Amino acid sequence: MSSTEGSVSIIPITDVSTTDHPTGYWKRVWQRLLTDRVTLGALAVLLAIIAGAIFAPWLAPYDPYTGGVITRLKAVGTVGHLLGTDETGRDMLSRLLYGGRTSLVSGVAPVLFALLVGGTLGVTAGFNGGFINSAIMRITDIFFAFPSILLAVVIVGLLGAGLTNTILSLTIVFIPQIIRISESVTTQVRSLDFVEAARASGANGFSIVRFHILPNVLGPILVYSTSLISISIILAAGLSFLGLGVTPPTPEWGLMLNALRPAIYVDLMLAAMPGAMIFITSVCFNLIADGLRTAMDIRIRIRG
């Protein structure tokens, strides 16, 4: 049995006819992912970007904060500066590697925090229903009255620029979205026969949520959350581009893109590299989310 909320597949694990145990279902999901070359390719590229960010102190050839007037705006391929230098003479390769740290943190952290808070509230609203559901969902609807980027700009404008405030503002933006999807899938799973059977057997609410609800709703919620990471990276870069996010001289792709705008007339490739990193990373997260969504759809057979 399966149903769909938006673009997220809702697959009750304990109600899947192809397996008698949740581990069998997740094994099939893993097998499908291993046959999806697009998802595996996107994962490989993303892991390379993450590795570059983690090991930046060892991979970066120069200090990302040190530059010089003599070395400013060196072209891509310059001896000693493989990807050239920025407007103050700092090595672009080093800046991009270190910038990946900030951009990935500002993209992933808000989604993780929103998943924890929004997922808890959404499951609570969907499982209990009634007044609790109405109270949580009506408050959630208030946030949907504002576009995501506008809400993030307003919150950061009130709190001030900085990485911490950027993460906080984006977390507030994503919590209502995760609440809505969590409430939706939980409401659907709550009405299924195996949940009613658990109620009839005398199981308490906590046990039902832990052993019957969560195994069935975590998958769709995680898939949706993965797709939000790409949006979070773009929004965080956009805030930095506007001067509302990370402050100079911290390496961050959005901030670098803004600083290199005048260089577009000198070296287009040099100016486009931070934007290319934002684009590639966002696309990778989107492809991985699409691959997970497809792999979790029990109606699609594994192609050998």
Rank of each mutant, 00 (worst) to 15 (best):
Ser7Phe: 07
Thr23Tyr: 03
Trp26His: 12
Gln31Leu: 06
Leu34Lys: 14
Val38Met: 01
Leu46Asp: 03
Leu47Met: 13
Ala48Leu: 15
Ile50Ala: 10
Ala51Lys: 07
Gly52Leu: 06
Ala53Leu: 00
Pro57Asp: 11
Trp58Ala: 12
Trp58Asn: 08
Pro61Glu: 11
Ile70Arg: 11
Ala75His: 13
Gly77Ser: 09
Thr88Phe: 11
Ser94Arg: 12
Leu96Trp: 12
Leu97Met: 05
Leu97Cys: 03
Ser103His: 06
Leu104Arg: 06
Pro110Arg: 00
Leu116Ala: 15
Leu121Ile: 10
Asn128Arg: 14
Ile132Leu: 14
Ala135Asn: 00
Arg138Glu: 02
Arg138Pro: 02
Ile142Arg: 09
Ser148Gly: 15
Leu150Ala: 15
Ala152Val: 04
Ile155Gly: 08
Leu168Cys: 02
Val173Leu: 00
Pro176Trp: 12
Ser184Ile: 05
Val185Trp: 04
Arg190Tyr: 00
Phe194Asp: 13
Phe194Trp: 11
Ala197Lys: 05
Ala197Gln: 10
Gly202Cys: 03
Asn204Thr: 07
Ile208Pro: 04
Phe211Pro: 00
Pro215Lys: 12
Leu222Ser: 06
Leu222His: 00
Ser232Tyr: 02
Val246Gln: 09
Pro249Ala: 05
Pro251Leu: 06
Leu255Lys: 11
Leu257Gly: 15
Asn258Ala: 13
Ala271Cys: 09
Ala272Asn: 03
Met273His: 05
Phe279Thr: 15
Cys284Pro: 01
Cys284Gly: 00
Ile298Leu: 01
Ile298Ser: 14
